[in-house]
Amino acid sequence: MRWVFVPLGMLFGFLLSRAGATTYDYYAKLFLFEDFQLLWVILTAAAVGMVGIALVARLRTRALLGGGIDLRKKPYTRSLIVGSLIFGIGWGLAGACPGTALAMLGEGKLGAAFSIAGLLCGTYLFGRRAGAQPTDISRVDR
């Protein structure tokens, strides 16, 4: 089943690119309040997802490729706000997010390679410092 995520990732990367999320300028313009392309992309995606996930939850079905459907919500933690602010600073500085940096690399935007190296470094530093995660993928069922 894991291999299906290669074409899925490919589709996701393609859509990120078409939506403008791999274009550095849109990040600068967003945070300078000059062009809200990416804000509308995010809000539309979340709104469509809201309807779609509600429908999927209603179906009470198993995943089409097998297994349960994960509808768990990420919990609030004490570090959520500070972590989100740190993330946002990196987001604005790199002009990319963890997903789009990968798609940018595929487009030949080589600056993203440094951001990706940083993402690995930041994740590694966190993991070195943090203890073991709770067994249930650090989320709670609700």
Binding site: I42, A45, A46, G49, K74, P75, T77, S79, L80, V82, G83, S84, L85, I86, F87, G88, I89, G90, W91, G92, L93, A94, G95, A96, C97, P98, G99, A101, G111, A112, F114, S115, I116, A117, G118, L119, L120, C121, G122, T123, Y124, L125, F126, G127, A130, S138, R139
Partner: peptide, 24 residues
């Protein structure tokens, strides 16, 4: 760019997700 990436990597783990996981 590396610093930006590091902030995103560390920050997203502290926050429990990034633009796709948390926002979308």
């Amino acid at each position: 760019l590396f610093a930006g990436g590091t902030a995103m990597g560390y920050g997203s783990r502290l926050a429990g997700g990034c633009t796709s996981g948390h926002v979308i």
